[in-house]
Design a binder for these strands. Structure first.
Length: 502
RNA sequence: GGCCCCGUCGUCUAGUGGCCUAGGACUCUGGCUUCUCAAGCCAGCUACGCGGGUUCGAAUCCCGUCGGGGCUACCA
């Protein structure tokens, strides 16, 4: 009984959301580059949580910084999510009741709220220039006081105002941070408190009138009725600012989203993952032949675990098992070796038809085949013998190219290995034996060569077969020899063996 | 510097006061199997950062300390 009770708790399928509101989770990247593994881990958890609770998964593009966000990156982000199978219920392409889902198309909404905050006195115009702010920050640092806006423009004299205006200065809109502190409950970290002495008045709207993240993110989460914000740990300290905006919007506390700050995914060098340390873009993994389900499975294990010594989960199982309660608070390091191991496992789980479908693009891209039905037939019959030998789809080209080479030649590095006297004896004998074979299947071939070489010549199998392997496949690493010979066919096999005899 | 977060094998993790002489996975090492390479199987190495408490009993609770990270923008 104890065991089953245990099981129930670990694998409960009921939503963990206790509120009566339907769960709405958003993934809101700012595509300033290709989505990387950290982004995707966040997207995966957002998606899994939404699916687990039967809620909605919302995809929003935070492109308020048009200097850095490009249309290509926005498109790439959508492609990546789709490729991984993280389909969204509301967002670009599919739309939804709270759109548009690109912040650059919601400027009027932010402007209206900004005007309201200004009118209410929650926000104020600030005319301090970047240079002035910079200088004052330096002074604060030198004086060893908390750096941040000093509130100079909270009360601005009419004279100064006239002066700044005559200079043509464009004001930013700043949120007034009241005295006190903000405490919120993070689902992963528990209660977190920030004293407002360390949360300076922050900018909502730039001098040119464009909104900043601090405004847009809070407005959108409220207006899109987001109930759960699962995002990167780097945003933890910006949470009090979002809550301040909610207050200014007049939102009641019960309508604030629940926050959960996910731990970082770090690179090998123990720093926050970025483009500088290693291959982090998902596109890179796709090109290398990593399976989307393997990437998701591996990433799910970074900062979360299903418990019960379980690791291999399908996407469906992930949505069933995922709970925020089981998410870690400590950062995880990305380990390529482990990803490769999981990728290999996932490849082995594929049916041959599925594997064929997935490997064909790689074979075509590498010029091994052009994609004719005849070629695909050969590939399909060869896949069973290499399925357990590859860790990524891209490796299939190297494994199977010997079957398709128009002009075959043994690798120059391998050539000397079959030119010694013993190898030549083996090859001559092989030529002789295979020529006389009535039927060309791997069992017959194996039997005949074993009789002639191992028993007949008294050679060790690894010695004897190695020479044939190199002569026929061009490398000392290949799929199983006899199956390879069968697939190659009698004519080409004999041709290659003959060509290797001096 | 200030504020905040974090700390179990090399890495990802199990662990929520006794089931822990700390379990699993990846990596690594050795072995088995074997036509190469893999896969598979078996075995081994290696961890509760440190110091104090609380308790009959602590990886689990508290305090301190050290270490790592994030933020500190008219980036997100």
């Amino acid at each position: 009984m104890k065991e089953s009770a245990h099981f129930l708790i670990r694998y409960r399928l009921v939503p963990t959301n206790t509120s009566d509101k339907p769960v709405r989770v958003r993934f809101a990247p700012s595509p300033t580059g290709d989505l990387h593994v950290g982004n995707i881990r966040t997207a995966l958890f957002d998606w899994a949580y939404a699916r687990h609770t039967g809620g909605q998964f919302i995809f929003r593009i935070e492109d308020t910084d048009r200097e850095r966000v490009t249309d290509e990156y926005i498109q790439a982000a959508q492609d990546t999510l789709k490729w991984l199978g993280l389909n969204w219920d509301e967002g670009p392409e599919v739309g939804g009741p709270y759109g548009p889902y690109l912040q650059s198309q919601r400027l009027d909404i932010y402007a209206q709220w900004a005007a309201k905050f200004l009118a209410q006195g929650d926000a104020y115009h600030c005319y301090c220039s970047s240079e002035e702010l910079e200088a004052r920050r330096e002074a604060q640092k030198a004086a060893n006081v908390a750096p941040g806006y000093d509130g100079k423009c909270r009360k601005i004299s009419q004279d100064d105002l006239a002066k700044y205006k005559s200079e043509g200065r464009l004001p930013v809109l700043r949120m007034r941070m009241p005295d006190g502190s903000t405490t919120f409950t993070d689902s992963i970290r528990g209660d977190v408190t920030f004293d407002h002495n360390f949360v300076p008045d922050f900018v909502l709207v730039r001098g040119d009138g464009s909104p900043l993240y601090t405004l847009a993110v809070a407005v959108d989460d409220i207006m899109m009725k987001v109930t759960h914000v699962l995002r990167g740990e780097d945003l933890l300290s910006s949470t009090p600012r979002q809550i301040r905006v909610y207050q200014a919007m007049g939102v009641s506390e019960s309508d604030y989203p629940t926050f959960a700050h996910l731990p970082f995914v770090m690179g090998q060098d123990n720093a926050k993952l970025s483009k500088r340390n290693g291959e982090v873009s998902i596109a890179w993994y796709r090109e290398r032949g990593f399976l989307p389900e393997a990437i998701c499975n591996y990433l799910a294990l970074l900062g979360w675990s299903p418990g019960e010594d379980r690791e291999n989960v399908t996407m469906k199982e992930l949505t069933e098992l995922f709970t925020v309660e089981r998410v870690h608070s400590s950062p995880a390091r990305f380990d390529m070796k482990k990803l490769e191991a999981i990728n290999g496992d996932k490849i082995r789980e594929l049916t041959i038809d599925e594997l064929l479908k997935r490997t064909t693009p790689f074979l075509v891209k590498d010029g091994v085949i052009t994609g004719t039905p005849d070629e695909l037939e050969v590939v399909k019959s060869a896949l069973p013998i290499i399925q357990e030998r590859i860790a990524t789809l891209a490796e299939v080209s190297q494994m199977l190219k010997f079957l398709f080479m128009a002009k075959f030649a043994v690798d120059s590095e391998e050539l000397p290995k079959i030119q010694d006297e013993q190898s030549q004896v083996v090859l001559k004998k092989t030529d002789e034996v295979l020529k006389g074979l009535a039927s060309w299947d791997h069992e017959t071939i194996h039997e005949a060569l074993k009789t002639a070489l191992i028993e007949g010549l008294g050679l060790k199998p690894r010695i004897a077969f190695s020479a044939i392997r190199i002569a026929v496949t061009g490398s000392h690493i290949s799929p199983p020899l006899f199956e390879s010979l069968e697939l190659l066919g009698r004519e080409r096999s004999l041709e290659r063996i003959a060509a290797s005899i001096k």
